[in-house]
Write a protein that binds this DNA or RNA. Structure first.
Lengths: 243, 243
DNA sequence: CGGAATGTTGAACCGTTTCAAACGGAGTGG
DNA sequence: CCACTCCGTTTGAAACGGTTCAACATTCCG
C-alpha cells in the first residue's frame, strides 16, 4: 500500500488516461518530468485554504479528502481523493486555494514544478486535453455529489457514496462480495454527506441490518452490488469511465 | 436584454478573460471562429442528459440552469448559467452529457463547431488555458454550492445564492440598493438549494421581514450588501474574480 | 374573462439533529 | 499485563428545521 517505489508519473498517467487516451509519445514527455516525493501521515493538511501557488502535488498512495468550512465553522467534505489525482490542479491557473485537502491515511505525495507542468501542457495540447478531461470528470462528480446532498435521503446518500468509492477503486466493475477500506470516521462521513455522525451511525446500522453491506472497523463489504446500486439510485455514467 | 446583435465571441472572451488574461492575438483568432445563433424560449432544454457530442453552445443572453434528476425523480439544480458561458464544455472532451440545461428566460445561444474549437485550443495553448481556468472556477463554484446545501441552514442558503448571483452579474462589486432579476420560481429555487418551494417561500418572507432583501415579482433588491453577506456567510473568494 | 401556474398560509408530521450517557477498542505507561 | 485514557461508536429521548398536504390567493397569459 505504501510501497515507496510507486511511480507518481505512472499513477498520474493511468488516472488521466482513464478519461482520455494519451499517446505513447506524450507518455514519454510526461516521464521526463522531474519530481520529488514525500510521505505525510494521516491527518496532515496537504493543501490549505488560502495557500498561494505551489508545486503540483500528485497523490501517489493513500486517501485524502477535500473540504471547505463555512463561516459558522461547519465543515463540508466535497470530494475524496484517490491515488493518481493531482490535488491542487486548481492552483495551476488560479492563484489562491479556496479549499483544504487533508490526508485520511498515510499519503505519499509527489511534487512536480507547476512551471514545468505548465510548460509541458503548453507544448503538448493532448496532455492539456487529458488534464482538461480529468477536470471535467471532477466537475461531473461534484454535480452528482450535489444531487446526493440536496435530494437523496440519508440511506441513499450513504449507499451512493459507498457505490462511488467502490467503483472508483475498481474501475472495471465491482464484483459481489468485494470489500474495501474506507478509513473515514463517522464524523467525516457526516461532513461528506451533509449529515450528523450520529445519523451516519444509525443509517449504517440500517444498511447492515438489511444486508446491503457488512462492516468491521473501516472495512466495507458489498454482498450484492446490484442491490446496493438499487438502494443508492446509483448510475455510474457520471464517472465517465471508459468501457 | 435580448438585443440580437450581441457578439457571442465577445461575450465568450469577456467571460474567460475574467479569470485568465487573453492576449489580443488570441482574441483575434477567437474572432475568426464561425458561428451561428438561435433564440430559445424560456423552458426549452438547451442540453439534455444523454446527449452525444454536439456543437459548442455559448449562452449569449438570458439565464439558464443546469440540473440533474435522481433515480427517484427528484431534481437538483447544480448551477445557474449566465451569459458568456459555454453550456456544454463537458462535451468538448467527454462523450455523453450527464446533466440538463434548461432556459430560465428567453435565451440566445450561439454555436461553434466543436471541431473548430478543439483545433483552435490545440493551436493556441493560452486559449486552452483560459478555458481550463474557467472550468476550474466552475468547479470551485460547485464546491461552494455543496457547502451551502450540506451545511448552511435555509436562510443562509437563500442569502448565499442571492449574493452569488448578484456578484456574478456585477463583477466589480455590488452597491447597496442594487436590484436584479432572478427569474426563478420558488419551486426552482427549492430544487437549487435542496429545499421545498414552501420553505423557500417562508425563508424569503423572513429575509424580507428582517430587511435583508426586498422583492417584487422576480426582482430582488439588496438594501445592504454588507448585511446580506453577513447573513449568508458569503466569501467571494471562490468566484476567483480579478481585482 | 377564464384557466393554469405560482405564491402564500396553516397544521400536522417526520427525518434528522442535539444532547447526553454509556460502550468499545487501540495505544500508553506503570 | 493490567489500568487508564482517548477517541470514536452506539444508543435513547427530546427537540427542531424542514416537509407534506391541503386550501386559498394572486398573477400571468391566452
Amino acid at each position: 500500500m505504501n510501497s515507496p517505489n510507486l511511480n507518481p508519473i505512472k499513477q498520474l498517467i493511468d488516472k488521466i488516461a482513464l478519461h482520455d487516451p494519451i499517446s505513447s509519445e506524450d507518455r514519454v514527455s510526461l516521464y521526463e518530468l522531474p519530481y520529488s516525493s514525500r510521505q505525510f501521515e494521516a491527518g496532515t493538511y496537504l493543501l490549505r485554504d488560502g495557500e498561494i501557488k505551489n508545486d503540483c502535488a500528485i497523490l501517489v498512495s493513500g486517501i485524502a479528502y477535500r473540504h471547505k468550512v463555512s463561516a459558522e465553522g461547519l465543515r463540508q467534505i466535497v470530494s475524496i481523493c484517490i491515488p493518481g489525482e493531482v490535488i491542487n490542479l486548481q492552483q495551476l491557473y488560479l492563484d489562491e486555494a479556496d479549499n483544504n485537502v487533508q490526508a485520511l491515511t498515510e499519503c505519499q505525495i509527489s511534487f512536480i514544478s507547476h512551471v514545468e507542468l505548465r510548460r509541458l501542457v503548453t507544448q503538448r495540447p493532448s496532455i492539456a486535453r487529458a488534464f482538461f478531461a480529468t477536470t471535467l470528470v471532477e466537475l461531473s462528480m461534484s454535480r452528482e455529489w450535489m444531487l446526493s446532498i440536496g435530494r437523496r435521503d440519508a440511506r441513499a446518500r450513504v449507499a451512493h457514496l459507498l457505490c462511488e468509492i467502490a467503483l472508483r477503486l475498481n474501475n472495471n466493475g465491482v464484483p459481489d462480495g468485494i470489500s474495501y477500506e474506507l478509513p473515514m470516521t463517522q464524523d467525516q462521513l457526516g461532513d461528506a454527506l451533509g449529515l450528523t455522525a450520529v445519523h451516519i451511525n444509525r443509517t449504517f446500522k440500517g444498511l447492515v441490518r438489511d444486508g446491503l453491506i457488512a462492516r468491521s472497523r473501516y472495512s466495507i463489504t458489498i454482498p450484492s452490488w446490484e442491490r446496493l446500486v438499487q438502494a443508492a439510485g446509483f448510475n455510474s455514467r457520471y464517472l465517465n469511465l471508459k468501457g
